[in-house]
Design a protein around this nucleic acid. Structure first.
Lengths: 207, 207
DNA sequence: GTCTATAGCAGGATAGAC
DNA sequence: GTCTATCCTGCTATAGAC
């Protein structure tokens, strides 16, 4: 269980915090065990009391991300209520807003950055991308569009295609957003593009 | 100048070839100078007669890529002729076909893979992505859509928005394509999605 | 332009005392 | 669970002979 006392963080959690921060800046290979332990304030050898090896730290981080991201999509059971009580614009704007709040939490931004950095080096990162993010989001949206068609709110088109048309631009805009943040460059252009996309998309599918 | 005699490749070119291949598989940090020189068939010290350091090898590869990618977009001067002599479908299908031929050349696929791998570690990779690829493609397409509107072939909409709507999905589908190739998984699904996107897009903008 | 030899350092990980 | 001390390996890069 979590620490019962306030402000006390276990060494293991401190290691995870520091590793999350460093990995998100320099990538897994760019960070040494020495660096992590120096930042945590323990000796290298002590780290091995908490993790078998460096790899296990990243694996733990990835598993935490999986749990965290799964929370961003509402369960199908409450979807009907949400759809019934929202306008088309309201629904997608709220979804976008939710995601923005998710990624604006520093911890989540770091998760995402690690995932982007490691996607071509680490098979687990690729798996999370392809399944936990891309596939699960598209599957969710496919159901959303099926329901929207049934409700007579949008044109009759293949739900699967609609999901792709809505979501794929968001994926690459998010990747661009991430790259810009990496260099601390201005992101207002790409954020505006995301909004423009949502409105363009709605205008083309609306009945 | 290039070697005048046939089949003779300079050591420098051989180093670049081997580095391109290895970097595209394991990333810059995953490949050592030792590994490159072993594969080339020279000693580590000999490499430093051709490149100042390991970094300069990657830099040279990136500059070669810049040149190569610039060839994929037709010059604006011949664009009018192409547009006048093509149907809407024909124009975009041919563009997609051109790109497929580009990325199916093993050397180019390796270039792309390195770029994806290094985009969060190497500022130059990010610059190439943001400017040489994203910005230049969007700028090109913006001109294309301006001309198509002037020709009365598509609806009057903001050319900039049309460029984004056409191209951003292609970027993320290409990223997914790359990930799948990395694991030697089947890419027919994502290739079909690319085609579906082109047709969906055309159907929404066509007059 | 290639080689041998080596410097100089940083990496992950372990043994064993406390 | 933390420490000191250490191992071993691999890394980039250089000096200098041929």
């Amino acid at each position: 269980m979590k620490q019962t006392d306030k402000s006390k963080i276990s060494t293991k959690d401190k290691i995870l915090d520091v590793a999350l921060d460093l990995f998100s800046q320099k990538g897994y290979m760019g960070v040494s065990v020495r660096e992590i332990t120096r930042e945590v304030g323990i000796k290298e050898s002590s780290l091995y009391n908490h993790f078998q090896n460096k790899d296990e730290i990243l694996e733990t981080i990835f598993n935490l991300f999986r749990q965290e991201f799964a929370k961003t999509l509402p369960p199908i059971t409450v979807l009907d209520d949400i759809l019934a009580s929202s306008t088309l614009e309201g629904f997608f704007e709220r979804g976008f807003q939710n995601f923005k709040e998710h990624i604006n939490q520093p911890k989540n931004e770091k998760f995402w950055r690690i995932l982007f950095i490691e996607q071509y080096r680490d098979p687990m990162a690729r798996e999370i991308f392809l399944y936990d993010i891309i596939k699960s989001t598209l599957d969710f949206l496919e159901i959303v569009f099926e329901k929207l068609i049934a409700l007579g709110k949008i044109k009759k088109m293949t739900p699967n295609l609609l999901a792709s048309e809505y979501q794929y631009p968001m994926f690459s805009m998010l990747a661009e957003y991430n790259m810009l943040r990496f260099d601390q460059k201005d992101t207002s252009d790409i954020e505006r593009k995301m909004k423009d996309h949502i409105h363009f998309f709605i205008s083309t599918v609306k009945l």
